[in-house]
Write a protein that binds this DNA or RNA. Sequence first.
DNA 1: TTAAATGCAAACCGTTTGCAGTGTA
DNA 2: TACACTGCAAACGGTTTGCATTTAA
Lengths: 170, 170
Amino acid sequence: MESRIERLCIEKGLKMTGQRRIIARVLSEPGDHPDVEELYRRAAGLDSRISIATVYRTVRLLEEKGILERRDFGGGRARYEPTEHGHHHHMIDVDTGRVIEFEEPEHERLMQEIAARLGFRLVSARLELFGRKPDVPPPAPARSLTAVKPRVASEAAAARSTPRPRGVQR
Amino acid sequence: MESRIERLCIEKGLKMTGQRRIIARVLSEPGDHPDVEELYRRAAGLDSRISIATVYRTVRLLEEKGILERRDFGGGRARYEPTEHGHHHHMIDVDTGRVIEFEEPEHERLMQEIAARLGFRLVSARLELFGRKPDVPPPAPARSLTAVKPRVASEAAAARSTPRPRGVQR
DNA sequence: TTAAATGCAAACCGTTTGCAGTGTA
DNA sequence: TACACTGCAAACGGTTTGCATTTAA
């Protein structure tokens, strides 16, 4: 079965290698925003003949072709999502790192207005809301936004990513 | 003459070394958001006995003390500004990298509302507008957001920083 | 057949850190 | 005098790249 992204690659004239097909398939999984390492992990799970260099080259190529969009939610790693849905923004759960997308026409209009007031033509915009579920108290070893994969030397660096809710740093 | 940040350092019980005093002074220059290299360049201009490791350690310490805030406007380098003024957001000129701060109460309210609608208590938020002056056509060697200091190997990386206006990559 | 894609390992860049020496309080 | 701070250089983590090899079209 041919994934959506695979189809787009073919349309753009890219060669569909085995590795590319796997990566395209993983990227077609809906509703998440994996970083390159996560992508690599999932892809390697399907076919171990994939190197992380290929994953990096592929997401970069796909971004240049307009098939993917790169996001930066802090933590020092780029995350990717398929380009498809219109303008949308992100609500990030600071406890789990989960990302929820939303659209907001009123907000769209307001941003145009602000830019115009400052004398600019709006090229792009980024709105990210960092929040916490009020009913669920933060789990015991509080997992911060960037705690997806525990690391050693750079944990501090990850925890310091912008914006960091006061009191959650480690 | 004692800078605002220097005073805050003393209040927090930090030792005021010559290097620290210089860095504090540079950081007190109003209305910009330098990255560490820029900070280092300016500080070294005032006193050459400053190493970049000290600049990194200082901004980190000052961030932990709540005196500075770290920003990420893409380009792979953290930028810093003094913590002082209330909630504000940023309009970034994609041609020059210049940053304009603004406040917007209506927007503040809207963000609370969106978070609540999604079932979250808002912890923090980030709104960044990337724009271009409509009257000034992009200068010949188009200076992108991250072109503050021309580099060699990582120019491509810098140009790919989120969000990147299509057609301005190099 | 050939240009594009890959794997490997080394390079790169921003940032952090270990250690021995320096300077503030 | 004690301990925070500093400089240097090496380490680190994410990302890119040179080169020889493989592979889709």
